[in-house]
Amino acid sequence: LATRISFMNEVANLAEAIGADIEEVRRGIGSDPRIGYQFLYAGVGFGGSCFPKDVKALQRSAQEAGKPLRLLGAVEEVNEAQKHVLGFKIRDRFDNQLRGKCIAVWGLAFKANTDDMREAPSLALIDDLVAAGASVRAYDPAAGTEARKIFADSRSITIVDDALDALEGADALAIVTEWQEFRSPDFAAIKKALKTPAIFDGRNLYDPAALRAQGLEYYPIGRKQ
Rank of each mutant, 00 (worst) to 15 (best):
V78I: 15
R4K: 15
A2N: 13
A170E: 03
I221Q: 00
F7L: 11
G107Q: 06
A142Y: 15
R148A: 10
M117R: 05
T3R: 15
A188L: 13
V85K: 07
E77P: 10
N13S: 14
L205E: 03
T177M: 00
G30S: 00
P121N: 06
E77L: 14
S31T: 09
I35F: 13
G222W: 00
G28S: 06
C50M: 12
R93Y: 13
K224R: 09
E77C: 13
K224F: 04
A174T: 03
E10Y: 14
F200S: 13
K101Y: 06
S122N: 03
D140L: 01
K192D: 04
K111C: 06
A209T: 11
R27W: 08
P68Y: 02
M8W: 15
A209N: 10
N96Y: 09
A81Q: 09
A65V: 07
W179T: 03
I199V: 06
V130K: 01
K111V: 09
D162P: 09
I175L: 00
S135W: 01
T196Y: 06
F200R: 08
A147M: 03
N204S: 02
E23L: 13
A188I: 15
L173W: 02
E146N: 14
L72E: 08
W179S: 01
V160P: 07
G30H: 03
D128M: 08
N204H: 04
G45A: 04
S184I: 12
R183Y: 13
I22F: 07
R26E: 01
G222H: 02
I150T: 07
G107R: 04
D115C: 09
D171L: 07
W106L: 01
L40Q: 05
V55F: 04
G144N: 04
V176D: 00
D201V: 06
K111F: 14
Q63I: 11
P33G: 00
A142V: 05
A12Y: 11
G73P: 01
L194K: 05
Q82D: 03
I5Y: 05
L1F: 15
I90F: 01
I18G: 15
A132Q: 02
